[in-house]
């Protein structure tokens, strides 16, 4: 049985230009998620989170390595069917255009009607309107139906951490192009770069959880 998502020896290297091949940014990832899950993803701006999402959905091509969704190499699936395997819910609702050198007719079918991997890119969480509750229930439903959910959040308020702790079973921390999978919330908090990134939110949250003296 193949993993829900297998990211193996994946790297994406951006260079200055076509002739000057000096690297300006490099993302490396190597991890596998066997079972349906809700995975929290975070990291500083510019660390490569969106690039990783784009590589997983196949809208961006890797320099080397590959991404397999339930055993299918996403970059070998017809471009018009890749979102039946992995779909990226953009913050801005923009959709990147797929570029491929191979015609669709020569590529594989997705073999799925409804996406297996759902990547949510910084959904708007607002405590005033109550939608958070509906969104979290939706993530749980997708997982219960056997799908893999990624939730990318840029925590800048305490309740963002509360959401991540409530719903995510595992985490991925992305920092300067380095992708680190972490087994659970405690693992996230034990990861030094993540602690540094969350900074004040952790101390505020600890203070809020402490019973009033």
């Amino acid at each position: 049985m193949s993993a829900m998502l297998d990211v193996s020896n994946l790297s994406k290297i951006y260079t200055r230009g076509r002739f000057d091949r000096t690297p300006t940014f490099r993302l490396d990832a190597d991890f596998s998620i066997e079972e349906p899950a809700i995975v929290g993803m975070m990291g500083p701006n510019g660390s490569g989170k969106t690039t990783l999402f784009e590589l997983i959905t196949g809208s961006n091509s890797p320099t080397s390595g590959k991404v397999e969704v339930c055993g299918r190499d996403i970059h070998r699936v017809r471009t018009d069917e890749r979102d039946r395997l992995a779909i990226h819910y953009h913050q801005s609702y923009q959709v990147r255009h797929f570029r491929s050198l191979r015609p669709n007719a020569l590529m594989q079918r997705a073999g799925s009607d409804y996406p297996l991997v759902h990547l949510f890119d910084e959904p708007q969480f607002n405590t005033q309107d109550g939608y958070i509750g509906f969104m979290l229930d939706f993530f749980r439903r997708l997982r219960a139906e056997g799908r893999l959910v990624f939730l990318c959040v840029h925590p800048n308020e305490r309740f963002h951490l509360e959401i991540l702790e409530e719903i995510c079973e595992r985490f991925i921390f992305v920092n300067k192009g380095v992708v680190t999978p972490l087994p659970d919330y405690a693992g996230l908090l034990a990861h030094e770069p993540a602690r540094a990134y969350l900074g004040n939110l952790l101390t505020e949250r600890a203070a809020a959880l402490e019973p009033a003296a």
Binding site: T127, Q128, D129, G130, I132, G133, F134, L136, D137
Partner: peptide, 10 residues
């Protein structure tokens, strides 16, 4: 729902 109860919609 916990989050709806916390919102202005409550």
């Amino acid at each position: 729902n916990k989050w709806v109860r916390r919102s202005a919609l409550a």
